[in-house]
Design a protein around this nucleic acid. Sequence first.
DNA 1: CTGAAAGCGCTTACAG
DNA 2: CTGAAAGCGCTTACAG
Lengths: 337, 337
Amino acid sequence: MSTTIRDVAKKLSISIYTVSRALDGYDDVADQTRQLVIETAKEMGYAPNRAARQLRRQKTETIGFIIPSISKRFSEPFFTEFIAGMGDELSASNFDLLVSNATSDEGERSLYHRWANSHKVDGFILNRIRRHDWRVTYLKAHGIPFVGLGKSQDGIEYPYARIDAAEQYLRLIQHIQSNGFSRFAFIGGPADLINHVERLKWFKSALKKCGLEFNSDHVLSTDMTSTGGYEAARTLLLSPTRPDALLCVNDQTAYGVLHAAHEQGFAVGKDIAVSGFDGLRDSDYTEPAITTLAIPVAEIAQQLAQMLLKITNNEVLDMQEIVIKPELRIRASTGHS
Amino acid sequence: MSTTIRDVAKKLSISIYTVSRALDGYDDVADQTRQLVIETAKEMGYAPNRAARQLRRQKTETIGFIIPSISKRFSEPFFTEFIAGMGDELSASNFDLLVSNATSDEGERSLYHRWANSHKVDGFILNRIRRHDWRVTYLKAHGIPFVGLGKSQDGIEYPYARIDAAEQYLRLIQHIQSNGFSRFAFIGGPADLINHVERLKWFKSALKKCGLEFNSDHVLSTDMTSTGGYEAARTLLLSPTRPDALLCVNDQTAYGVLHAAHEQGFAVGKDIAVSGFDGLRDSDYTEPAITTLAIPVAEIAQQLAQMLLKITNNEVLDMQEIVIKPELRIRASTGHS
DNA sequence: CTGAAAGCGCTTACAG
DNA sequence: CTGAAAGCGCTTACAG
């Protein structure tokens, strides 16, 4: 079938050992031999069979990423950007990225099991971490390397990146307040999601510092899609205690909120304020443009991949924690001052 | 380290052959033995080592997908949906999806080479097919299975899905014309992209049928991102022969067009008409909502995966071609009739 | 219905 | 600096 190391060795009348060592760049092969091997291998189109190498080395050089199963038919730009970031970093080290998407909680579990048990991957990158996250417990218990975007509250140590937006929430809310809005609502994600929990906490604490009232009826959970945001906003905008500032857990949700606002005849930026989180490219292009707390999604994914590569390579991590501070991007959706 | 087939065999005092055959569901193992094996394997957390199986079977049960390198920092929801569709279908057959993203043309080539030569994947799914596409030529020449969303014009046969929107373009343009717009522009993608070529062709032919003028100055190329659409629309809207109907090659581009229109003070749906293509979830939520030609992205990806699975399985394909007719979704961006 | 053995294509201690 | 050989964990013809 295709070229093997044996073919290359035969052609040069040397042992397969020498071919293997030469290609892997060890210095126990004569320079001249190495040159010859490298050229011949290239000529013959030889590339080491990955399955054989994996089996022998007991390493797959592959990282797994499973898109969480929060919503069925999603199309979140966040994930494309995240995948691209991981891919960039991994490719550079000749690692590959195995991707799948969970269609149910059950299916998600079985995917992690399958990939871990059958040595399909050397490690996992997690996101959408939950407060109590079985993935964290499971992977830790089985000694499978992983990193996460967010830290679960299971008391388990692992390397992660986290977003610290405490200060930015304060600035955001001060800004919105200064534009005359005062009845704040939080349109969040699933209640056990770390992103939800933390952002809500910062939201509350910022309200307090600004002397604003916190109304727990004005905290809603969504599936973090634009449809979720749309429905939540409808509920809020039709309620008797209608809020006039809607802070969303992500940009996607905010898109839906804008739509609901237009439908109900509210002028966004004037009658009500709306903000998002993530700083996706398209949030520039909505009408009006959305004020958001922007994070460099692809770069975060890159850094997580880098951490995981070091771990699977048994290198010492200089940092177990990466902290990202979002950038507050003020745009028209929160008023004109 | 982890459980192997040998451990299971030893525990039951049977040969590894029997374990292997029992787990693979062959009927040459006694029912009682099979039951016992299956239970024990589950108990012990045994899963066949993928590398060993791959090496032996000379099959990887993995499919490759490389996100094309058209634009650098993209975040196209299209791809998340496409990946999810492939993932669904592949997981169901216990296949996995290897994903990477090309950062340059060079890098893209080397990724295809690497995965193909080193037997990382059994086949590829291509999208964003170009008129003359080296991927098609390369994979065909090397006998590597693949399917594509779109058919290249290299005269090479391969199984593909294609979109036929001839009729829908006519209906779209008739609809826009009936709302009083007459100066049509086409905001496309890269000139050699099949999506661009075909949609432009349908656009032209529909204009002709409607007795409308085609102005080649009103055909622009973009990178198919919202930024690309924004820039193209600025150019068009500031030109002396300003068009009043902007048809976009995809929804993402149309987002940018909406933004440019608002910026220039044009009322979309009244002063100018705008339409997209794909029917992404968010196109419902723009202001105004975008008229679009909707295709079931995830389902198409599923079908492509299904075709490829059959090929790698040496089954006969009943269809070499899948034809998708988009659905015209008329919304406010093209007027109010 | 079950077993002992070969072999997939590599990598890597062990000799020389 | 180079070679012959073992072995990673499976699958599968070949015997019985």
